[in-house]
Amino acid sequence: MAISSSSRFGTVIAYVRTMAVFIAVWWAVSVWTSNLVLLPTPFAVIEAIVDLARDLELFVQAGISLGRMMISLALASLLAIPLGLLMGLRRTLDDIVDPVIELLRPISGIAWIPLALFIFGIGNALPIFIMTYAAFFPILLGTVAGVRGVDRGLIDAARTMGVPRRTIVTRVVVPAALPSLLVAVRLGVASSWTAVVAAELIGAPSGLGYAVEWYRELLMTPQVMAFIAMIGVLGYLTDTSLRALAQRFTPWAADARRM
């Protein structure tokens, strides 16, 4: 569906209007409860955001969490994409490895937190491990599905023309699997971003999840809400930018825009 500029303008208006109503209701409720710890006014939260931004604390913690996410995403991709390619290409390897994957997959990354806390202690390693684990499965399964989905005819055609196996993989299989691979990476990022908050909340001395919990203990609710908002904003921004990337690299894929 093509979005005309007037309807996009309308969407912006609708957005502003809805959020204005939401903030008005929030303000009314917070005035009515008149308990700044339980429900601060929207203005107190905005003030907290400005203060935290001026201190740079908001950005420092966000940077730490984002940095951890980048590292884990890189690790998960390095492990999952080659494995997924191999599993998609070789049935026998898939038969061997898949049972292990299916055994581990239902155990959510978050359920690993206590054991990982014991192994890694509190620090950087724990959130990175949890996030890598959380991102690994969506990326792996997406890669395998993508490779399986490659048109057999294309591979056969390349083979008929005498293209060596390695070149078939790099020039035929990978480009054809790219759209679903990028979707897989996006799903991986989403699930690791959820996991990082949990991991930082429990077992890291820094990061957004830690900051949320720290300010809750100090009963500084405006700051808690400011960091929660930051988590949402970053989650949204990473997803949108990955979507944009997918559309840029694989403009032919309808998948890149939906879901």
Binding site: L201, V212, T221, I228
Partner: peptide
């Protein structure tokens, strides 16, 4: 707009508020 604004906020991030 409301749904899309809250959707990116992970449920676990809300937990400190829920405890409060």
């Amino acid at each position: 707009p409301l749904v899309e604004s809250f959707r990116p906020i992970a449920a676990i991030a809300i937990l400190p508020l829920a405890i409060l």
